[in-house]
Amino acid sequence: MKVLSYDDVELGDDLPGEIPDVSMLKVTAFCTAAKHVFERFVDHEAARKEGFPAAIVPGIMSQSLLLAMIHRWAPGCTVRKIDTVFRGTLLVDSKVTMSGAVTDTDDSARTVEVDLVITAEDGRTGVIGTAVIEFQA
């Protein structure tokens, strides 16, 4: 498989969209690794008692889901900066979609900027963000 290089990337390119696994199993594993095991993330019923429609995906997990998408798009790249705004809840065990697009390129630094979005199953925007990605020389 050809590995994406800086020279292959153009402003306006889309990153291949993905449907990440936000099952209770994955979210619980993440929360355990992050020492972030709160009921609103790992227990649907408890989350409902807090006023959520169901358990919610931690914001910091959604950021890392986007990072994994970037690494699949450009293997070997280095994400120098990622900036995410958590605008709405993403529900555990729901179908969410991730997308991205190249919005800037810097030939001297061999970096690209991308917009990132995670959309909830009902069409709401859950996360928006940007990242600066450095390609190997």
């Binding site: 994955k26 594993a29 690794a33 890392s64 889901l65 994994a68 699949r72 293997p75």
Partner: peptide
Amino acid sequence: WALACGETD
């Protein structure tokens, strides 16, 4: 952490 987020790198 990485595996839970679907990391393959």
